[in-house]
Amino acid sequence: MIQLEHVSKSFSEGIPALNDVSLHISEGEFVFVVGDSGSGKSTLIKLLLKELEPTSGSITINDIDIRKLPHRKIPYFRRNIGCVFQDFRLLKDRNVYDNVAFAQRAVGASNRSIRQKVPVMLSMVGLAAKYRSFPKQLSGGEQQRVAIARALVNNPRILLADEPTGNLDNNNAWEIMNLLEMINSRGTTVVVVTHNMEIVRAMGKRVITIQKGNVVSDSLVDGMGGDDDEN
């Protein structure tokens, strides 16, 4: 599903943001990517979205070598990847319904499809009753739910979440994580970048640790905080 082979990314001379990273994420997996600030986690997400080009190495997603992907095909490639960010990135002048519908309109979905899918997504994230609210009327957790609904409304096979709980309190962070786990249980591959180690330890998922651009560990956590299996 996601395959990185000897991927490096340098922005300028000096320490590379990512250095010779190789990893494989299978379909349906739930993976945490952890590391300190500036370790290269967000660079990894940007490379997966083809927002950035690797300096060297190859990235294959859904059997597509994205280095060879021409510019005009990038939008179609991205439709298979949903993304969620720490700052939610909602359109402030549109209500909840329109924020989610926006993702459908951007891919040219019909009005009928929008009318069918948006309410389903809002129900799934528990915001059906707040479809008319504007982002500023919602809590941080609710805004992130809207962002998740928007990321999923086009049925992507992969969901990338870059610090999705970074702006949330503990309760909301857990709600979001439970929601992501539920989404993963439905078959979507989920990659979560975070530094909330409490959640990472408690969730018992595969954890890839990046330090100074290098993958220093790739292991399955047992859900109680201990490493279960080192890859």
Binding site: L49, P75, F77, R79
Partner: peptide, 10 residues
């Protein structure tokens, strides 16, 4: 930026 990340064409 959001449009582009969602997969909107140019």
């Amino acid at each position: 930026g959001i449009m582009k990340l969602i997969g909107a064409t140019d």
